[in-house]
Design a protein around this nucleic acid. Structure first.
Length: 834
DNA sequence: GTAGGGTTAG
């Protein structure tokens, strides 16, 4: 009864099963004594059927009834639910010979309806059955499921089992091959390589699909060549994808020249350059910014007798759009049509993005009209491109409206479109709205992924909510999504921003030591954390470690170090780093120069500051709005107010948008120059440009009026702001209080003090101290005493300094009773007095 | 082949 494809069963146990099974098939009921000898373990109960008997009874039932009817019988159902792994192994092994279809069905039935956890042996039995039946799709599914359960590093165990238990099974080659391929597909590349080595030992040949898959996964490493050479030796026939994967790999390894040589080398061979290979190299050329090179390859395709497909055109059009050569992109679109290749939805999306990049929203909309006329409907990508654009220019409301429109058009947003919205909500500080949207996403039935989680975790950390971020992080892990270095970077930054440097460092070390997340950005975040607290020493140590770990610093690394030296007033050291940047083959950025300029500005060294500008120009590094602000700050310091105003105008002319800090800088300078009229003109200009003034803007104006203008005007300004329900921070009030104290108007000071407390601001001993000290200086001892009592009534304990100030004032004003009262209070508070 | 996430400056 053994079929030809099947290895002979050799273990004694299997032989016994087989013996009993054949007797069973011949309709002879198995004797209890035979059954007992088949049991894995001695039966302890005389009522329950022993193991071997159960197996035989089930096999008998299956044979007589067929699976469906069998499982509907209560008796059998009950029996199945009591099966153990070894019994299932026996049943499946038998069925694989007798009735392959029912082996597979029985396997699935146990797993899906009985929640049975199959042994590796059972899984391999079914995999071999599927391989024999050439049911490759299902074979891959079962294999994927198996590897998901086995996890990384399981290859040795599985190979051992294949070798010991299935070596002579038919279709063993297919199972080995699918195993290698599944490991590769499931990102367990080392396991895939292990299987490949074992296959070579067994003289089994892997399929080209497996080789291509593995090559694809390894295309960014040198191991790619080992696999490629192995494939050549094994004699596996090439496919046209193999060459395009190699070319893609070389491009990704920044070996563009080698990729071109490889392409040239394979010309004329059986699988010479294909359209796919050309597309790959064109795509890479564009990504490297060499659109012209891509164009030459495009022409070369014709010369090689190949016709570009829609992909080729789209790649080139996309490259042209990204290089902002919109006109040429449109020309190629026409050319595409002329050559009988119809522009598809991807072409239109690429062009729409091109218009968006140039800021021509109207162009994008017109294009969509044209697309509709051609009978092509916008898809999710089209909408996402538009949402991105609205967000980028800060118009999140319009982006959210577009979401509503999408829903009304019957589109369900996918994870990517939601993540765009989440990201920009977080970036503009609207983290709570992002969390709300995140919930809506879940209600839409969308599972958040690593990117959407990371966006929110980052948003929370940036806001200082590390605790909540960690909660979300745990939730993510519980959902089976594992953090990557981007997620870790967010948490690390959260610790740094909170000033929890030792904790950040511990976290950092654990990440770096795991070597799975060796990432330069993590170094940059940690280095920046150190320099922000002034610890340039540790920052430099980490910088040195970067090289030791075989990585290279980026311009961000250097910028943070330069910032650190500047912060420690070692501007010369910082400047030296500028040369080291150039020696490391990196280019300084606008940020590099801005940090240095700011340091020179703080030193009052305008000459050095201004000398950097032509250097930037020579390197074609554009000034950012922050660079301008720093230059303006420098000019303001030199009281060159007119020039700074001119620069502000120049920014608009150059398409840069001055922000609140730019305006605050110039406004403050005009205040200091007692030119409150110009200060308020700038304030109006700011409003005209739809710039929301910050707390600092109001504080600067209030302080300006208090110190350099008329205090009454300051009172009026505060009232008018309060009338407009504009939020002010504590500094606005302390400024007013200070000014009135200095002027000696204690009543007004008291009034603002009460307003400040009424707004819920926390008032510290320092705030009381500031008021009391000013009042004491003006010999207003009674008023000072009022604030002192107020402080005690709010439960704020006095310190020695404040008491001494008051004692002096009382003495000077001859308030002897108050002196004694205060001394009594001081004793109560345990304050020593001489 | 088109859409999403991280680090630096005032």
């Amino acid at each position: 009864m053994l079929s030809k494809w099947r290895k002979p069963l050799h273990s004694p146990l299997n032989l016994q099963i087989l013996a009993s099974v054949s007797s069973f098939i011949l309709s002879k009921p198995p004797s209890v004594s035979t059954a007992a000898s088949l049991a894995d373990e001695p039966t302890t109960s005389s009522v329950a059927p022993d193991s071997g008997e159960t197996v035989r009874v089930i096999l008998s039932g299956l044979r007589c009834l067929g699976l469906r009817r069998f499982v509907n019988r209560y008796y059998f159902k009950n029996l199945i639910s009591m099966l153990n792994c070894s019994q299932v192994d026996q049943i499946l092994e038998y069925l694989s010979v007798e009735n392959a279809d029912s082996a597979v069905d029985f396997f699935h039935l146990l797993r899906n309806e009985f929640g049975f956890r199959h042994s590796r042996f059972s899984k391999f039995v079914v995999l071999h059955v599927l391989a024999r039946k050439r049911q490759l799709k299902e074979l891959r599914l079962v294999m994927d499921q198996m590897l998901l359960e086995e996890g990384s590093g399981s290859a040795p165990v599985l190979c051992e089992l294949l070798l010991s238990g299935f070596r002579r099974w038919d279709s063993s080659n297919v199972v080995w091959d699918v195993l290698a391929c599944a490991y590769s597909r499931s990102e367990m590349v080392h396991d895939a390589l292990f299987v490949l080595v074992k296959m070579k030992d067994l003289n089994l040949v892997a399929s080209i699909q497996t080789y291509n898959n593995l090559l694809y996964k390894l295309r960014h490493t040198n191991i790619m060549w080992d696999v490629y050479n192995e494939k050549k030796i094994s004699g596996t026939p090439q496919s046209e994808y193999t060459t395009s994967i190699i070319i893609d790999g070389l491009c990704r390894q920044s070996r563009f020249q080698d990729a071109v040589l490889f392409l040239r080398d394979i010309e004329g061979k059986e699988f010479g350059p294909s359209v796919v290979s050309f597309n790959t190299i064109m795509s890479r050329s564009c990504k490297l910014g060499f659109v012209d090179v891509a164009k030459s390859f495009f022409c070369l395709m014709f010369k090689c007798g190949l016709l570009p497909d829609a992909y080729s055109y789209n790649i080139l059009i996309n490259g042209l759009c990204e290089a902002e050569s919109m006109e040429e992109a449109l020309e190629f679109t026409d050319d595409m049509e002329m050559h009988g290749v119809e522009p598809d939805i991807v072409t239109y999306n690429i062009l729409a993005k091109g218009f968006c990049l140039l800021g021509f929203m109207s162009g994008a909309w017109k294009l969509i009209q044209k697309m509709l006329i051609k009978g092509l409907n916008p898809n999710l990508v089209t909408y996402t491109i538009l949402i991105c654009r609205y967000c980028l220019v800060g118009n999140i409301e319009e982006a959210l409206n577009l979401r509503k429109e999408m829903i009304s058009q019957g589109f369900q947003l996918n994870i990517i479109s939601y993540t765009v919205l989440l990201s920009y909500l977080c970036k503009s500080g609207r983290v709570d709205e992002a969390l709300q949207l995140f919930c809506e996403m879940g209600a839409d039935g969308l599972q958040p992924d690593i990117v959407s989680y990371s966006v929110l975790i980052h948003g929370l950390c940036k806001r200082g909510d590390v605790q909540q971020a960690i909660q979300l992080y745990s939730e993510m892990c519980l959902n089976g999504i594992f953090p990557n270095s981007v997620t870790h970077g967010a948490i690390l930054m959260g610790f740094c921003e909170k000033g929890m440097i030792p904790k950040a460092r511990m976290y950092f070390d654990s990440l770096i030591n795991s070597s799975l997340t060796l990432d330069i950005t993590l170094y940059n975040i940690m280095i920046d954390g150190y320099v922000k607290v002034g610890n340039i020493g540790e920052a430099v140590k980490l910088y040195k470690q970067i090289g030791e770990k075989g990585m290279s610093p980026t311009i961000v690394t250097f910028n943070s170090l330069i910032y650190g030296f500047c912060k420690n007033r070692k501007v010369d050291e910082a400047r030296k780093l500028l040369n080291i940047i150039k020696l490391s083959g990196l280019e300084p950025s606008a940020v590099t120069y801005t940090i240095l300029m700011n340091a020179y500005c703080d030193e009052g060294n305008m000459q050095n500051l201004l000398e950097l500008l032509p250097e930037m120009e020579a390197k074609a590094i554009g000034l950012t709005h922050i660079t301008y602000t720093v230059v303006i700050k420098g000019l303001c310091k030199q009281r060159k107010l007119q020039e700074s105003w001119v620069l502000l105008e120049e920014m608009y002319a150059k398409g840069l948008t001055p922000d609140q800090i730019t305006y605050n800088t110039v406004i403050q300078a005009f205040c200091k120059a007692k030119d409150m009229i110009k200060a308020f003109q700038l304030f109006d200009k700011m409003l005209m440009h739809n710039l929301e003034p910050t707390y600092a803007t109001y504080n600067i104006l209030i302080n300006g009026l208090c110190v350099y203008g008329d205090l009454k005007d300051a009172d009026n300004l505060l009232v008018s702001l309060q009338d407009k329900e504009i939020n002010l921070n504590k500094i606005a009030y302390t400024t007013m209080i200070k000014a009135h104290c200095v002027k000696g108007d204690a009543n007004k000071a008291v009034m603002y003090f009460h307003q400040m407390v009424g707004k819920g601001f926390e008032v510290s001993i320092r705030d009381y101290s500031a008021v009391i000290s000013r009042l004491c200086k003006r010999h207003l001892a009674t008023e000072a005493k009022y604030f002192f009592c107020l402080m005690l009534s709010y439960g704020v304990s006095p310190d020695e300094k404040i008491c001494k100030m008051m004692l002096n004032a009382f003495h000077r004003c001859g308030h002897l009773n108050s002196v004694f009262e205060l001394l009594a209070e001081m004793i109560k508070f345990g304050l020593v007095c001489d």
